[in-house]
């Protein structure tokens, strides 16, 4: 990898420079929380944010998007285009950078999804280091570090950022817009010290030993019934999850009924109708079955295909779930056999 040291004070210049060519999206304050939003002003960028309400996935896989316009009379596709601005996502934490790699496995795999791919191809990613928050457990999955999936990654070493540069575009941008210098051994030592402090700051120890085995061996455990009793079935966990990719597709007719739009929206395996088929059979009829499936798929189904679990430990679902169902707690229940 290619490294540079960038003074923190020049970040607004970098953002303003990027804004000449790109829509720059980054964490901004919204009331008490933070959201990823287009920056109206470089000063709005809040690199000190803890986490955002929604993850970065919506900039590649929006909560609702038109796939195509159609005509009813001859069942024809009239147009299929997508508006995608050249964009920079500025300020993603390692969990969110890693989440994009997990989404890539699904959307860029054997049969690429052209809508996701177009946005991914048109988007630069600038990551930034963070401090573990109350709900963070990325250390459990090794997603506290990131080594690819970004163009530039900024690690805080005091007054400067220790910048890892992964792409030609990233290198060009740094050279063009900010005064920077090559790293020294002292910078790397500071980077190492900072990394050690970061790793020591995690508090949500998650014992991930033998999870795939436990998920199968305890498939009929009563822990799932207990969790099903608590679960609201609301799907909030899926919406805020940076790696939940399930979607639904439906047609919206124009008022004149002559044409319409085929629309894709986020979906959740926690919704009752998710696994129901036309003849009336519902393969996951209870909340217990649905909450179990979510964990079974994330920690084993996806792993069996891509050798990674489908979780980056960002803690958004912990925050979102009013019923207090979250990965650290579910994993503890699997390990101990008891929902605490």
């Amino acid at each position: 990898m290619f490294f540079r040291v960038i003074p923190k004070s020049v970040i607004p210049d970098l953002v303003r420079g990027l804004a000449e060519q790109y829509e720059v999206v980054g964490p901004v304050a919204k009331g008490e929380t933070f959201v990823y939003a287009p920056l109206a002003d470089a000063a709005d960028l809040r690199l000190d944010y803890d986490t955002t309400a929604l993850p970065a996935k919506r900039w590649f896989f929006p909560e609702s998007e038109a796939l195509m316009r159609f005509r009813v009379s001859d069942n024809a596709v009239v147009s299929e285009s997508l508006d995608t601005a050249p964009r920079v996502l500025f300020g993603l934490h390692p969990c969110d950078v890693n989440s994009l790699l997990l989404m890539d496995n699904v959307f860029l795999g054997e049969t690429p999804d052209p809508y996701y791919k177009a946005r991914r191809d048109n988007t630069l990613v600038v990551g930034v280091s963070c401090t573990p928050g109350e709900y963070c457990f990325c250390d459990a999955w090794g997603t506290d570090e990131t080594h690819w999936g970004f163009d530039i990654f900024l690690s805080d070493i005091g007054d400067d950022y220790y910048a890892s540069i992964r792409s030609v575009m990233g290198a060009d941008l740094v050279d063009r817009y900010v005064p920077c210098r090559a790293i020294t051994d002292e910078d790397t030592a500071a980077f190492q010290r900072r990394t050690a402090e970061f790793k020591a700051a995690f508090t949500n120890g998650v014992d991930t030993s033998q999870l795939p085995v436990l998920l199968d061996a305890k498939f009929d455990s009563e822990i799932w019934d207990k969790l099903g009793e608590k679960c609201l079935g609301c799907g909030a966990c899926s919406m805020v999850c940076p790696t939940c990719y399930c979607f639904d597709v439906h047609d919206e007719l124009d008022a004149d009924q002559l044409g319409g739009t085929r629309v894709r929206t986020w979906d959740s395996c926690q919704f009752k109708q998710f696994a129901a088929v036309a003849h009336g059979q519902n393969f996951r009829d209870t909340r217990a079955a649905r909450v179990k499936y979510r964990y079974y798929h994330k920690q084993w189904g996806y792993l069996s295909k891509f050798e990674r679990v489908l979780c980056v430990g960002c803690g958004r679902c912990t925050r979102a779930c009013k019923a207090e169902i979250n990965p650290p707690r579910v994993v503890r229940a699997l390990q101990t056999g008891v929902v605490d």
């Binding site: 609301c234 909030a236 805020v240």
Partner: peptide
Amino acid sequence: SRVLLGLSDRVPDMTMCASCKTNETVCFF
């Protein structure tokens, strides 16, 4: 539209929270 096409009644049966999360609204609770 669904009436005119003879399609089934499909009133959503999930609760509100997923919409709130999608809107990035802070939970009242």
